[in-house]
């Protein structure tokens, strides 16, 4: 199932703008995580602009879909997407990580409209998403819950505890997404903690697995559409991504996980992203 051409072009245009704006903000603030924000761009954009039932006018709506950004350090991209949806003004991005800002360094469900779960400590987001999914099922809600995991994050044992429980409790309203960019803070995933055959692991735990290009909005769209048809099992979309996607010198580089962007790198990045002034 493909996106209509017009929708696809709209999403691609949004992603282009979001990358520019996030790099702009991170350069301004001189703090925050560029690499993982750029890799998760299409995943968040496709979810919020083709899948999720949310209402910025009523952020606490009971039957809304939920999204848990388990890899909470990608908060800048989540905030940019939520701002575009209308949860808060785009200009507020300037306050990211500022004193008394609603846009904390990692997502906070108490402070920020549109944020469904406080995250930051890695490993507990999938479990929290599962709890949401089971609670919504008890209420006979049709709402779905999305959980965005980092591939470094799946080093955490709790993720696999959640995998067992999601299958046992038949959480078919839970859709996890692995932002599979192959790089974590200290180095490549292969260097730091080789996870072996990740797809085989999730399959062995009993999950429905869909593998796709995590920067192709068409592929992501069809993966999420397929996930909705799976009954009795949780689904994970294994989205192949590139850390730092869109900025050549950040791509695949762990050094850009959480580094402040200097003026020279900023100028080069803006040129590549088409955002040079």
């Amino acid at each position: 199932m493909n996106l209509p051409m017009e929708k696809k072009a709209q999403l691609q245009q949004l992603c282009k703008q979001f990358r520019i704006d996030v790099i702009e903000t991170l350069h301004q603030r001189q703090t925050g995580h560029p690499g993982g924000s750029l890799s998760v761009c299409e995943i968040l954009t496709t979810l919020y602009f083709t899948q999720m039932n949310v209402d910025p006018a009523n952020p606490a709506k009971a039957d809304r879909d939920r999204l848990v950004l388990c890899k909470g350090h990608a908060a800048p991209m989540l905030y940019r997407v939520l701002a575009e949806k209308g949860f808060f003004p785009v200009e507020e991005m300037k306050t990211l990580r500022c004193f008394e800002s609603r846009l904390q360094g990692h997502p906070c469900s108490l402070e920020t409209p549109g944020v469904d779960a406080s995250t930051g400590p890695l490993g507990i987001g999938l479990s929290a998403a599962l709890g949401m999914a089971l609670g919504l099922k008890l209420d006979n809600s049709d709402a779905r819950v999305y959980a965005i995991l980092g591939d470094g994050e799946i080093n955490e044992g709790t993720v696999w505890e959640a995998c067992m429980s999601a299958v046992k409790f038949k959480a078919d309203n839970l859709c996890a997404v692995l932002d599979w960019n192959g790089v974590q803070l200290d180095g490549t995933a292969e260097e730091i903690m080789p996870m072996g055959d990740i797809r085989a692991k999730f399959e062995a735990f009993g999950w429905h697995c869909i593998e796709c290009d995590g920067h192709d909005v068409d592929a992501l769209y069809s993966a999420f559409e397929e996930a909705k048809t799976v009954k009795g099992l949780p689904t994970i979309v294994l989205a192949h991504t590139i850390k730092g996607k869109g900025v050549s010198f950040m791509e695949g580089k762990n050094g850009w996980h959480g580094k402040a962007i200097d003026d020279e790198s900023y100028a080069k990045a803006m040129e590549e992203l088409g955002g040079a002034k």
């Binding site: 929290a128 709890g131 609670g135 959640a162």
Partner: peptide, 17 residues
């Protein structure tokens, strides 16, 4: 799986349980 249990409780609580 105590860590998973406690985080699941957080999710359940966030949807009104």
């Amino acid at each position: 799986a105590e860590a998973n249990m406690t985080a699941m409780a957080g999710g359940l609580a966030s949807v009104g349980k």
